[in-house]
């Protein structure tokens, strides 16, 4: 019995690698350096939901059915997010990081891996309340064009608003959260004025390169899905995008400690995983 299980596991792992390889060769999206355990779970979940009987059948779908590929890319995107996720992080931005940015005549922010945009709009609200938004440019990127489309719309199910509002208050929000959206019975649409200085675009951290120099990079809960080699590639992108004194914000369970670029940064607010790029000696 044990032997059968182990052989099935071996075959399943080979098939998962073939699915990933097919996506890469056909569409250029590269998941080969993502967490194996994670990618496998996502692909098997899709297999169960699809009614297909095997991963080998899925490879055929990947090659010939672009609708199915859209689904699979959505499965492999990191879509779980919320406005002001980890309120203490946004409070730290407001109280400790914005005063550093205030001296700049123009502020550029890169939000890498922005998913459906909740945290980008959180940043826009924060900047507005601190009178910085009018001289800020935010680049919000994700590899998945479908998710970037959602992000641009800035419309969220109304049943999520309560959670967003609680986070907003905890993060030091100065107004009523309801000031920032209009609503019908089903959805809440964030104000267009929040979108004014945001450029949403596709950018793939795995395969694309640096596109701008920015003062602040936010990339939270993305690196945890990558292996060490890919983490290093991405941190190098951030390093190359930031001037000395630039700020890098990671997710609460991510850190630079094991990166080859650790020496380029100093922890600024260690608890919130906020780093500052060192000045040359």
């Amino acid at each position: 019995m044990k032997k059968i299980q182990e052989e099935q596991l071996e075959n399943q792992d080979i098939e998962v690698r073939l699915v990933i390889e097919a996506i890469y060769q056909k569409y250029g999206y590269d998941f080969r350096n993502y967490s194996q355990a994670h990618v496998k779970r996502r692909i098997l979940n899709r297999l169960n939901a699809s009614g297909m009987t095997s991963l080998s059948e899925m490879i055929h779908e990947v090659l010939y059915n672009s609708k199915f590929v859209d689904l699979l890319l959505m499965d492999l995107s990191i879509t779980v997010t919320e406005m002001f996720r980890d309120p203490s992080f946004y409070l730290a931005l407001r109280v400790e990081i914005f005063p550093l940015l205030k001296s700049y005549p123009f502020i550029k922010i890169w939000h890498a891996g922005c998913a459906s945009g909740e945290e980008v709009y959180s940043m826009a609200i924060l900047l507005k309340e601190e009178d910085l938004y009018s001289r800020t440019q935010i680049y919000a990127t994700d590899f998945n064009p479908l998710i970037i489309k959602q992000a641009k719309e800035g419309t969220y199910p109304v049943n999520r608003i309560k959670e967003f509002a609680v986070n907003y208050q905890k993060s030091g929000g100065k107004n009523a959260f309801s000031d920032y959206y209009t609503t019908d019975n089903e959805s809440a649409k964030l104000l267009d004025s929040l979108k004014k200085n945001i450029v949403f675009a596709t950018h793939n951290l795995v395969t694309d390169s640096v596109f701008a120099e920015v003062n602040l990079v936010i990339c939270r809960n993305v690196l945890i899905y990558f292996d060490r080699q890919l983490q290093d590639r991405v941190i190098r992108l951030f390093d190359d995008s930031l001037p000395s004194g630039g700020i890098l914000c990671l997710g609460s369970k991510e850190n630079l400690q094991f990166s080859s670029y650790y020496g380029e940064f100093n922890p600024l607010i260690a608890k919130e995983k906020i780093y500052i790029k060192k000045y040359p000696l």
Binding site: D13, A37, H38, R41, V80, T81, N221, I224
Partner: peptide
């Protein structure tokens, strides 16, 4: 496991954390 994260084992027996559903 940290609160609000899934904890997974990789085939090489290291930990992965995710914020999946």
């Amino acid at each position: 496991a940290p609160p609000n994260y899934h904890l997974l084992f990789e085939p090489d027996r290291t930990f992965t954390l995710t914020i999946d559903e």
